[in-house]
Simulated scan of single mutants.
Amino acid sequence: MIKSEIVKQIYAVSHLVGSFQLRSGRISSEYFDKYQFEANPSLLDAVVKQMVNLIPSNTEVLAGLELGAISIVTLLSHYSGLPTAFVRKEAKKYGTSRLAEGAQINNRKVLIVEDVVTSGGQIIISAHQLRELGAEIDYALCVIDREEGAVDKLLAEGITLLSLLKRRDFPT
């Protein structure tokens, strides 16, 4: 599936208009319900196949952020052959008590994977936590950058945001 078709399909199944509070706390008149495109197997497959080409060549581990990026990072791992870490918002309080499950991240080049990014707040929080665990993080990769300041905020943290799609790619 070509990128323009992906844009049309994501917009058709996940773009909502109304009043929505974003993770950043801001109110938006539009929202991309990521679970709608992530729950569509053929669309998710097409999205991830395009994202593989954006993975920096020195990446050793993909790190998917809970919850929205888990399906994306799992399929991205499948197509790229790179191991995956599943990153919680906070370490679980039972079992292994880990923040990041799966692949080891210590002293490895880790690419954070996210679904839709607005301000980059969760990426910044997770990057700080993963860096404390020894991960080397220079990049984050998302499906959609809403183009609301995340690029600059992430650059201030030493992270370059790579995105498959930007808000400007969709109808207004």
Rank of each mutant, 00 (worst) to 15 (best):
I72A: 05
L75G: 00
G64E: 05
Q122F: 06
V113Y: 05
G68C: 06
L99T: 06
L154T: 07
V151H: 05
D145L: 11
A150C: 10
L75N: 05
R131G: 10
I137V: 11
T84N: 03
L133D: 10
E157G: 03
I124T: 03
I137N: 03
E136F: 05
I125Y: 12
I112T: 04
L162W: 01
G134P: 11
N107R: 14
E136G: 08
S77T: 07
K93W: 01
V61D: 00
G134E: 14
T84M: 14
V110H: 00
E66M: 04
G158I: 10
L141T: 06
A103K: 07
L130Y: 05
A103Y: 08
Y79N: 12
G121P: 06
A150L: 09
K89C: 10
K153S: 13
G64F: 04
H78Y: 15
K92C: 11
Y94H: 15
A127F: 05
S97W: 10
L75S: 07
L67K: 01
E157I: 09
I124S: 12
E132L: 14
D145K: 12
T96I: 12
L99C: 12
G68W: 02
E147S: 13
E148T: 14
A100Q: 07
F86V: 14
R167F: 08
L67H: 01
G95A: 15
G64T: 09
G64V: 03
L164D: 02
N106Q: 15
K92W: 10
Q122R: 09
L141Q: 03
G149W: 09
R108P: 05
I72T: 15
N107D: 15
A135W: 00
Q104L: 14
G102N: 11
R131P: 07
A85M: 07
V87T: 08
K92H: 09
L162I: 11
G81H: 08
L62F: 04
V61N: 00
G134C: 13
T74I: 12
A127G: 05
Q129C: 11
K109A: 11
R108G: 03
T84I: 13
V87W: 03
L133F: 09
R146H: 13
I112G: 00
V61T: 08
E90P: 00
L62H: 04
F86G: 01
A91H: 06
A150T: 06
G120M: 02
E147M: 15
K93P: 00
L164V: 04
L76R: 04
P83L: 05
K92F: 11
I159T: 03
R131S: 13
A85Y: 07
C142V: 14
A100V: 12
D152P: 02
R88D: 12
K109C: 08
L130G: 02
G68H: 10
R98V: 00
S126A: 15
